[in-house]
């Protein structure tokens, strides 16, 4: 289930889950205290304290749970040596306005791949899209850095995966694309 939470659309619904209680409570309180009953409340300030405590505790616990649940989906944590998922294929690439120079474009399903990239001019992105249009992951490259940017990813389904630059890099930025071919593992 968490697989679908830590996706683009999962993020959108997470925002709705956080915002909806605020919005409903806000509409209720403003309407009630400006239209229905505008007089001061009989509650004493000290009686608000437990409500405030509960409110802040719920917010804090929610924040902690979300971030702990997300740890598993951080690419570098998922690919850490202790996870036992070492990369078996290395793909190095260089991004330059407005194309990628990739060491390989062929990948097998089920085998972890480490993408390591550098930029040779300005900032570029490297985002891989599933054939159905979902973005799987993105990474950023800055020129003149000592280490490359890298992500380890295991493709599950064969197909043609599109690569796009997601960092604005000039007037042909929208055309900076490439393709990866993922084939079924033998």
């Amino acid at each position: 289930m968490l697989d679908s939470v830590f996706t683009g659309w999962g993020a959108f619904w997470a925002v709705i889950v956080m915002f909806a209680p605020f919005a409903l409570m806000g509409i209720y309180i403003v309407r009630r205290k400006s239209v229905v009953d505008t007089g001061p409340t009989s509650l004493q300030p000290s009686e608000f304290a437990p409500i405030e405590g509960v409110w802040l505790t719920i917010a804090f616990i929610f924040f902690v749970i979300v971030n702990l649940a997300g740890l598993k989906f951080i690419p570098w944590a998922a690919a850490a040596p202790s996870s036992g998922v070492g990369p078996v294929q290395e793909i190095d690439f260089t991004a330059k306005s407005w194309a990628y120079d990739l060491s390989s474009r062929q990948i097998e399903t089920g085998k972890p791949v480490r993408f390591s990239g550098r930029s040779s001019d300005t900032q570029h992105g490297f985002a891989v899209y599933h054939p159905d249009g979902r973005m799987l992951f993105t990474m950023l490259m800055m020129p003149n850095t000592t280490k490359p940017t890298s992500v380890v990813y295991t493709f599950k389904e064969p197909g043609t995966y599109k690569v796009r630059c997601l960092e604005y890099c000039g007037i042909a930025h929208h055309a900076m694309q490439d393709e990866l071919t993922v084939v079924k593992s033998n």
């Binding site: 830590f6 996706t7 683009g8 999962g10 993020a11 997470a14 925002v15 956080m18 979300v66 971030n67 997300g70 740890l71 598993k72 989906f73 951080i74 690419p75 992105g125 985002a127 973005m135 992951f137 993105t138 990474m139 950023l140 992500v151 997601l166 960092e167």
Partner: peptide, 14 residues
């Protein structure tokens, strides 16, 4: 949400 590291990899640059 977009500052969560896992979600950042799904959203950054979009």
């Amino acid at each position: 949400v977009t500052s969560n590291i896992a979600w950042a990899y799904q959203l950054h640059g979009t």
